[in-house]
Amino acid sequence: MDPPVVVDSNDDEMVSHELEQMRSILEEAILETRSMPLENQPRLPRIPLSKRNRAVVRALNPMQVTYLEASRDLCETDSVLFGAAVAAWRIIGAKLPMAGRATKQSSAIPAWRKRIEDLSAD
């Protein structure tokens, strides 16, 4: 899928067909992530700061409002926010790991649990 071209102008305005394309990418990402268990959501890196990336995020923010207002619980809110993050990455053209979080590091015992276990062993 080709990411939409964000118009680079002085006031960061985007033309309507680009906004519609972004909205469709957002809807698709939210639908994909809605049924995804939290443990299968990949860790998303921070979006690099640039004028173009900020324009993408600013354009996506108001698009999320409808979905956030309709969310009934924290899980739905999470799926909307995570879907928006995935959409932002797709729009800027970055590749995301969508295989899930199952990595060596995530299967390790968390540091907070080790500290508690160490304290209780004393």
Rank of each mutant, 00 (worst) to 15 (best):
P37Y: 02
I47Q: 12
L96T: 02
I47Y: 03
R90K: 15
E18A: 12
L119F: 08
A88D: 01
N61H: 07
S50F: 05
V65E: 15
T66D: 15
E20S: 14
M98C: 14
A88E: 03
A59K: 06
L96H: 03
A84N: 07
P37M: 02
V86F: 01
I91Y: 05
R23C: 14
P97T: 12
E32K: 12
R54Q: 13
S79A: 09
C75R: 15
M63G: 01
L31I: 10
A94K: 06
R58D: 15
E20P: 05
E76Y: 01
S120M: 13
I30Y: 02
S107H: 11
E18Q: 13
S107T: 11
A29M: 03
S35D: 06
S50C: 04
R101P: 12
M36K: 11
L49R: 09
V7R: 04
V80R: 04
P4E: 02
I92Q: 14
I116S: 07
T66K: 14
R43S: 15
E27L: 01
R101S: 15
G83N: 07
R90P: 05
N53P: 02
H17R: 13
R115Y: 10
R52P: 05
A55E: 04
A121K: 12
G83A: 07
D118V: 05
C75F: 09
T77A: 13
R90G: 09
G83H: 03
E32V: 08
E13M: 07
E27R: 01
W112R: 14
K51S: 15
L81G: 03
V86W: 01
A70D: 13
M14E: 15
Y67L: 09
L26H: 00
D122N: 11
T77N: 11
D78G: 11
R115F: 10
A70V: 10
K114A: 09
D122H: 10
E117H: 04
Q105F: 03
I25M: 04
P45L: 02
A88R: 00
V65L: 14
E18T: 12
P45V: 02
F82H: 01
R54A: 09
I47E: 09
L81E: 07
W112Q: 14
S79Q: 08
Q105W: 04
V86S: 07
L60I: 06
G93T: 08
G83T: 03
N40E: 12
H17K: 12
V7M: 08
S106R: 10
L38E: 13
